[in-house]
Amino acid sequence: MSERWVTLAALAALLALPLWALAADEPFTITLATRAAILALAATGLNIALGTGGLVSLGHAAFFGIGGYAMGILASHAQTFAPLSLGPWEVPGTQSMPVIWLVAIAASALAALAIGALSLRTAGVYFIMITLAFGQMFFYFATSWRAYGGEDGLSIWVRNGFPGLNTLVPIQFFGLCFAVLLLAMLLHGRLIRAPFGLALDAARQAPARVLAVGLSPYRLQLAAFVLSGAITGLAGALYADLNRFVSPAMLSWQMSGELIVLVILGGVGRLAGPLIGAGLFVALEHWLGGATEYWHAWLGAILLAIVLFARGGIVGLLTGQGDRRG
């Protein structure tokens, strides 16, 4: 099967499942599909840095959490009608998704710019570890940030609104998340073929040659890292809205690890990799969790088998092409 067909089939499956659930009156299945779509969006963000850029970030939970907190902070201020004070200015909170999304994207892009600018001075294992360190800083900060709930997190009574939609209806919220995921995947697809994507790919494989043709690998990778962080941040805002809740757990290093798991499970650098990884992960969590109390052990065994015997992830298996890393 060609990769294009795998991508289309995965998207069709994700779309068909909740429509079936709607007909069969199984609203929780729609919630599961929404969760898969949002995790796929977060992993798509990571995939730009990890797959296309070759930057193994173990700190992407920071952006996921920043997006979540952007939603939590704005919505909680709207909920209590207390304006948010930013030094000399006072801004009202909001429960409008488009505004929250913009703030989430801007905040996580800014954080990615700062973290990326410092972290990209290092490479390899050091890069993995310094991104982890930045993630941990945000985690500990949120844990003790009492104004916004600290370890307890922030709870929102009703889901935020989107013009023209009733987001409390599961299928409508799913449609919204699916549309955002589709846009992000289109963007990623275009990016891979655009000059920027090609240069980025070259910077991963042969930085010296990129430098020789007058491009800066550092700047290319920084731009990719910022874009990657912004998409993951947007996913964070949606994830917080799905749960109507945000907490430091979204910033934990296990969350960063989980995002990497999603990407590798599906296939690193593949367009459909994050989507298939997220779908499989949510399904495993759902079925294995019901089957045994020790389901984490089985999840571990499955992950191990995929790393050892199915290089290139599920997409690699389906397309019959092995690993896509240079």
Partner: peptide, 16 residues
């Protein structure tokens, strides 16, 4: 002991 898992379980128990 994960808040987001708890929220999903609650959604499932209420909805399904």
């Amino acid at each position: 002991q994960a808040p987001d898992t708890a929220v999903q379980l609650a959604d499932r128990m209420i909805q399904s």
